[in-house]
Each structure stands twice: as C-alpha cells, then as structure tokens.
C-alpha cells in the first residue's frame, strides 16, 4: 500500500524539474572500495522445495559486465536447510529463468504451512544464518479483467479481497503471463500490511510489474507497461508472509521505486540474515489463480 507514498513522491519528483528550467550533467563521485558482503535471496513455499540465490555486493560505480558478474556469482558455498527435524544441503544448479542463473535448490524438504525453516550458509570463512515461517495462505474473493477507459486492449486486473480481522496479515502479490513471462513477477507495489484494511472487504487494481527496473529502455518502449492485455492468460499468486519477510520486501520496494529520488531519505533495508550478510530468507503461503483476460 505504498500507493500514496508513490503519489506524494511521484508528484514531487516530476514537478520540480518540469516547472523550473533544470539542467543536468554528469559528475564524478569518488568512493572507497566497499566491504565485501554476501547477499542471500532465498524463499520456500508450501508444497515446494527451497530456492536460494547467492551473490556478492559490488562497488557502486564499477561497470557490470559478464566478467564482473562471474566474480559476483562464482564462488564456493554450502547452503544447508533444516526444518527443525531433518536437514539437507541444497544443490547448485543452473536456471536461466533467474538472474543470476546459478541457484541452490532443495530436493528433500518441502515447505509446510505453519512450520519454521532454518537456513545456514558457509562460504569463504563466513557463516550466515536465518529463519522464517510459512503462514497459512488466503484467497481472493474474485478477480476479473478491467479494460482501461481509453483503450480497447489494455487494462488492469480488478481484485476483490476480504481480510481476516482476527489476525495480523501481510501479503505479496505476483503475476505471470503465460508464454510471455519466464516466472512470477511481483506486481507494482506488491507488498501490503493489513493495518489499513483489517477485517475489511475491498477492491483494488492490480498493475503488472516488470522483471527488472534496470532495463529503462525496455520499460520506456513497453506499450503495455503496468497493464495486462486482453486475451492473455495470467496466473496471479497471492502470498502471505511473516513480519520479517514483509519488512524486507517493503523496504526493498521503497528503495527500488524511490532510491534515486533525492526528495526521499534512504531507508535501511530490513534484512533477516544474521552474520554480516544482506538479503532475505522468507517463507510464502501461496495461492494461485489462473485468469483468462476477457
């Protein structure tokens, strides 16, 4: 629900340069070499094995090309998952649906609702640990395609949802267009805290997200940016998360959307990785809906 944040900030970011004659130029900023840190992006969903992506941080201004990327992702590490009873070592595999394409995948332990999962990573003398839970999943009341007023093919998905008043809930929403997207992509403004609609039934628009915001040209050239197309089949995934998991994605999205905005003070990312690492290990309670947009 950072919609109104986006409204305030979008306004301010747009108007100042527009109203005034502003000029821009490139400058050089000298930065020291940063301390190297291990970055974890890991998740586990009910009914599925764990997935963990490991990378390292990079100096801010360095050019990132295939050589630097190799240094960032190609290093030895042991990733261990435990559910409190048994543990397994995740296996390093190649999967080009993800960036970077090297992932660690479980083969034994599948996520179960209500359980806690512990992750341990050992790499180059460092050890990181984290834990997370999988809350029970919930469903949308209904989903339908809503054509935009001034378009005959593009629109948003109109979702109806009722929040459970007796519990504290956090949500995250993804969507994937069949045959067009490689994997589930978070929608624009994907994280929600039920503090604003606890117990209420509400309706809202789902705006399609983009797989990477670094592809500025791609975004500018995408005529369907934030929209869904009539005729497509879309899978919507509604997830529940625990507080620590929510805090991470909330602060990450804040950084992704407003990090380059000088009117907004940077906020620290709330990582749940212990031991000097960055990133997240999170559990999702997932519910899938498939919708043909007509």
């Amino acid at each position: 629900m950072d919609n109104y944040n986006s409204l305030i900030i979008k306004t301010l970011f747009i108007i100042i340069p527009i109203i005034f004659l502003s000029c821009e130029k490139e400058i050089t900023v000298d930065l020291p070499e940063p301390e190297q840190r291990l970055v974890v992006e890991g998740w586990i969903e009910q009914g599925d094995y764990a997935t963990v992506i490991l990378t390292k941080n990079m100096p801010y201004f360095g050019k990132t090309d295939s050589t630097t990327l190799v240094q960032m992702i190609n290093f030895p590490a042991t990733v261990t998952l435990s559910n409190g009873e048994i543990s397994e070592t995740l296996i390093k595999t190649l999967n080009f649906d993800y960036f970077p394409p090297i992932i660690y995948r479980g083969t034994i332990i599948k996520g179960e609702i209500g359980k806690t999962y512990y992750l341990t990573i050992n790499s180059e003398g460092k050890q990181l640990t984290a834990s997370t839970t999988i809350p029970p999943p919930v469903k949308f009341d209904s989903l339908r395609f809503l054509l935009d007023k001034n378009s005959d093919s593009l629109g948003t998905i109109w979702a109806k949802f009722t929040d459970n008043p007796s519990e504290k809930n956090y949500y995250r929403i993804f969507s994937k267009r069949l045959n067009r997207d490689k994997k589930m992509i978070p929608i624009l403004g994907s994280v929600y805290d039920d503090i604003f609609f606890n117990g209420l039934s509400l309706s809202f628009n789902i705006y399609r997200g983009y797989d990477t915001f670094t592809d500025i040209d791609g975004i500018n050239n995408d005529k369907e940016f934030s929209k869904y197309r009539l005729g497509d089949t879309v899978v919507i995934k509604l997830c529940t998360l625990d507080k620590e998991h929510f805090d991470f994605w909330y602060t990450v999205e804040y950084e992704v959307y407003y990090g380059e905005n000088p009117f907004v003070n940077p906020i620290p990312i709330k990582s749940n990785i212990k031991g000097g690492g960055l990133g997240i290990w999170g559990g999702y309670g997932a519910n899938y809906d498939t919708l043909i947009l007509k």
């Binding site: 930065l31 941080n57 990450v252 950084e255 940077p266």
Partner: peptide, 17 residues
C-alpha cells in the same frame, strides 16, 4: 548520504548506503 555499494535482489539493484 550516498550509496557505497550495490547488490541484486529479484533482478533489481539495491543500494547499500
């Protein structure tokens, strides 16, 4: 306050300040 390093999460760049 400016960023000193960056890393990837979900295909996006995150700044470390």
């Amino acid at each position: 306050t400016i960023p000193i390093s960056r890393y990837f999460i979900e295909g996006n760049i995150i700044n470390e300040y």
